[in-house]
Structure formats: structure tokens, C-alpha cells
């Protein structure tokens, strides 16, 4: 349990620091990568909806620490995204990487749009300007590609030994 918390903290902090250091200069068509959102999605894939929501809340709070929008906005959006990602049921979607990539892409686009809508509702930003279309497309595509690496990392960071040794769920 203690090791799981340590691993989770290590991965979350590394992703947040990476996002605010080296990834500062990596842009595609003027759009930054969004690793924290991808981590939340992969956390949800790996650990189910409850853990996905909790991971989303924690990563969202840390992300909010660097933004000017109202504190808690990213936590709200990321919790919901983590929960939805976890709806795929624990473990059953871990494996076919193309499905993971497609889902990560869809959820990333939903996350970016959700954040924009939420911040617009609170009077920040401008809804549906051309830059948002670029952001949604670029983040969806890059997160689909990066999910190939992020899913195993999330499994390693968040999976508990007891749960991972549980037999897989068989769907009828």
C-alpha cells in the first residue's frame, strides 16, 4: 500500500514537472501536449472509475495550482474524465492498444472541450474560437499516440498488488 502511494506520487509529480519544464517548448501547430490529462485517462483505464475519479481530482488540483482560472476547475473536469475512463471496467480494456488509443483520443478531446466550456461558463476564455479546434485535434492525436506508453506507466504506478492479482472479469 505504501509503495503504491509512493509510486503514484512519484509519477504524478514527474508528469506535472515535465509538463512545466521540458514540454514548455514542445508544440505542434502552437498547441502544447497535455500529459496530466492523459495520466488521468490512463489511471482510469487501469484502476476503474472510482480510482480514476480520485486520480483526476488530485492531478486536477495540482494543475490548478499553475492556472489563473478558478481553483478546482481542472479538478472538476479531470474527476469526471477519470470516472468516465474508468467506466470501461477495471482491467478489461487494458491490452488492445488501439482501443486504448482511440478511447484516450476521444476522452482527451472531451476533456479539452469540457474544460473550455466550464471556464467559459465562469467567464474565462472564448468558446469555439479557431485555436480551440486546433487544441482539441492536436491533444486528441498526441494523447492517442502517447497512451501506448502511458497506460503501462499508469498500471505500474496505480495498480495495487492485491487487485492486480484478482482474476480478470469475464463479460457475457
Amino acid at each position: 500500500m505504501r509503495m503504491r502511494v509512493l509510486r503514484s506520487a512519484l509519477v504524478i509529480m514527474t508528469v506535472i514537472v515535465l509538463q512545466h519544464s521540458i514540454l514548455n517548448s514542445v508544440q505542434f501547430f502552437g498547441v502544447h501536449l497535455d500529459l496530466p490529462l492523459l495520466l488521468v485517462i490512463c489511471g482510469g483505464f487501469s484502476e476503474g472509475r472510482e480510482a480514476g475519479a480520485i486520480i483526476g481530482f488530485i492531478v486536477g488540483l495540482l494543475t490548478d495550482g499553475f492556472l489563473l482560472t478558478p481553483f478546482g476547475l481542472s479538478a472538476l473536469v479531470y474527476s469526471l474524465i477519470g470516472y468516465i475512463a474508468g467506466q470501461t471496467e477495471k482491467g478489461t480494456f487494458i491490452g488492445p492498444w488501439m482501443i486504448n488509443a482511440a478511447l484516450a483520443s476521444l476522452l482527451s478531446a472531451t476533456g479539452e472541450l469540457g474544460y473550455e466550456i466550464a471556464s467559459r461558463l465562469l467567464g474565462f476564455g472564448q468558446l469555439l474560437h479557431i485555436h480551440l479546434v486546433k487544441v482539441v485535434l492536436v491533444v486528441a492525436i498526441t494523447n492517442a499516440i502517447l497512451s501506448v506508453f502511458m497506460v503501462p506507466l499508469a498500471k505500474w504506478a496505480f495498480a495495487s498488488r492485491e487487485l492486480s492479482s484478482r482474476p480478470p472479469v469475464i463479460r457475457r
Binding site: R49, E50, F57, G72, L73, A75, L76, S79, Y83, G86
Partner: peptide
């Protein structure tokens, strides 16, 4: 899971409102 999500959403909304 739904109760947890509800609690987290309420916590987030509270934080947003306070902020």
C-alpha cells in the same frame, strides 16, 4: 464509485465557488 464521484464533484464545485 458514484458516491465518491459525487463527493469529488461537490468538493471541486465548492473550491471553484470559494475561489
Amino acid at each position: 464509485p458514484r458516491v465518491t464521484l459525487l463527493a469529488l464533484v461537490l468538493a471541486s464545485i465548492t473550491l471553484v465557488t470559494v475561489s
